[in-house]
Amino acid sequence: MPLELIKEKWSNKIDVVTIGATKAEGGTRSKAIKVGGETGLPYLLEESEMPHKPVIAMEIFDVAPDDWPDTLKDPYGEVLNNPLEWAMKCENEFKADLLTIRLSGIHPDAQNRSEEDTVKLINEITAKVKLPLIILGCGDDAKDNLILPRCAEITKGERCLIGDAVQKNYKTIVAACLAYGHSIIAESPIDINIAKQLNILISEMGLPQERIVINPTVGALGYGMEYAYSIMERARIAAFGGDKMLSQPFICFVGQEAWRAKEAKAKISEFPEWGNEKERGILWEAVTASAFLQAGADILIMRHPKAIEIVKKHIEELIKN
């Protein structure tokens, strides 16, 4: 009797979201990147398709980060103090797929950077860097609602991904994405019901579901990774089963979480039994990232160039036919 394998056939698939617009599409990006479109659980290519492979976005900040360990700062060197040069290095030297600009410095408790300074920075980056862009606020609702719409306006037609919209603060950002042709990141606190609810609220304002990506809020390896892992698996199973309001690609803020972990940051002198800090930090970020790939991540936001290189290579291996 021939062996009968069990192949899952699902009724629904993940939406395809496009980030970046080329000249022909009304923008100035060197390429447009598509994510999503999966018809089944990750990398089971015998039973489902993954038309667009997961991508990695490198992350730069408008002000130099003050909590990065040396092992993470070293590959960047001086450019950490110059966001424009930093962005150019990501494009030219590290060959990033996409660029994430995180506006941490606009937070009132941080440098409280102004609208003018931010507009100037985004204009410079848009002119000099041709990667598709992800633009992130600082988490302070009032400041984000002031500055993100301006960022959306000056990048009109570039088809950026803008975030994060949260349940208590989404309207202004959705309106800006609608007005200037961008897509949105919808963030929920490791909660499948809130993720769905927020997608419904955003859709009700008229933003098509092909312009939403889900940020399920992830934890680092060893720091709650498994909660997000299971939430993502549950959401995907619901999506493939037919739930259109959970059928959006996932974005995972891996670098931000992994580099907070003690295991990624601590010097070997503090924990000699943990081994070399350089390789340890890189692996902490890379393993966090690859775990979420297995849960269905479509966009990974990462920091260490070596970790990014490793995960990129691993993605090629995962989609090899």
Partner: peptide, 17 residues
Amino acid sequence: EAYQILPILTLRQNIYT
């Protein structure tokens, strides 16, 4: 190496919780 094994064992601990 410890820096290779620590993440593997941590991941196992997470996923079997």
